[in-house]
Computed example of a mutant assay.
Amino acid sequence: MTVLAAGLALLGSLFFALGAALQQFEAASTPRAGLGHLVRRPRWLLGGLSIAGGTALHIVALRYGPLTLVQPMGVASLLFALPCAAALRRRRPRPGELASAAVIAIGLIGLVMVVPEHSGEPHLSTGEAVTLLAGAATAALVLWLLSRQVSPAARACLLAMGAGVLYGATATLTRVLVDGNWEFWFLLAVPMPALLALVLLQRAYAVGHFGVAFAALQVADPLTAVAFGALLLGEPLPTGAASTLIALAAAALTAAGTVALARTTPMSPSHDVIAR
């Protein structure tokens, strides 16, 4: 069952990476990156279906294997995404891109591995749910405002980080819906941060720096979910000297890899007007 879970998680990562590459290709290739325009493009919709398939496979993998095994496998999407995006543009991924992505993947795996498992039933009060949504929206707004004043690579990173924060909030709400006690309006609230995240992510993709945008998303999403889980759901954080050192080293690797990836050549020309 463990091997099956690992295989499903890896296959899900491949589908997720392919979908992200397809959506970035469309977002960066059109003068209009709004959702209303993109949803009419077949290749962008195919990317959405691929992402949905990858997500479904990841959920099924969690039924057959522990979170500590399945979650690190999801990081492989970062390594799959760059070759997929390069193939769409009919070029080979550069060694520097793959090396930077590998460093980020190792860092993310290290971070995931030191997060303790939590078997308690998650619960959010109405006030905590409002705090969750307001906090994520505020952070995403600040990142969006900052993105308007920086270089294209930094803009792609900040916009994708904003999307990651909103997806992290969505994941937190979803965890409560699946495993805990919740109120009916939570079900109505879940699509809001997810939709805003999708808009920000397409703007990040439109800038052209796919590698750094996808990496920033992969970093911000799980870290935000872990932070919200600890602050609002009472889930544990790493404790002890060894876990703390591993977490710090993993965070340093992740940051270094992201910075290195931001310095690589963009996948497509930057559309400053779109990104704004």
Rank of each mutant, 00 (worst) to 15 (best):
L22P: 08
L22Q: 07
L22Y: 10
L22K: 08
Q23A: 06
Q24V: 06
Q24D: 03
Q24A: 12
Q24I: 09
F25K: 04
F25A: 02
E26Q: 08
A27L: 05
A27V: 01
A27P: 00
A28L: 06
A28H: 02
A28E: 02
S29L: 14
T30R: 04
P31F: 01
P31Y: 01
P31S: 01
R32M: 02
R32Q: 03
R32I: 04
A33R: 00
A33C: 00
A33I: 00
A33K: 00
G34Q: 13
G34F: 13
L35T: 06
L35W: 09
L35A: 05
G36I: 08
G36N: 11
L38Q: 09
L38I: 12
L38M: 14
V39W: 12
V39N: 10
R40K: 14
R40N: 14
R40D: 12
R40S: 14
P42Q: 14
P42R: 04
P42V: 08
P42D: 12
R43T: 10
W44Y: 12
L45K: 09
L46V: 13
G47N: 09
G47T: 05
G48F: 06
G48C: 01
G48S: 04
L49V: 09
S50R: 02
S50N: 04
I51L: 08
A52Q: 08
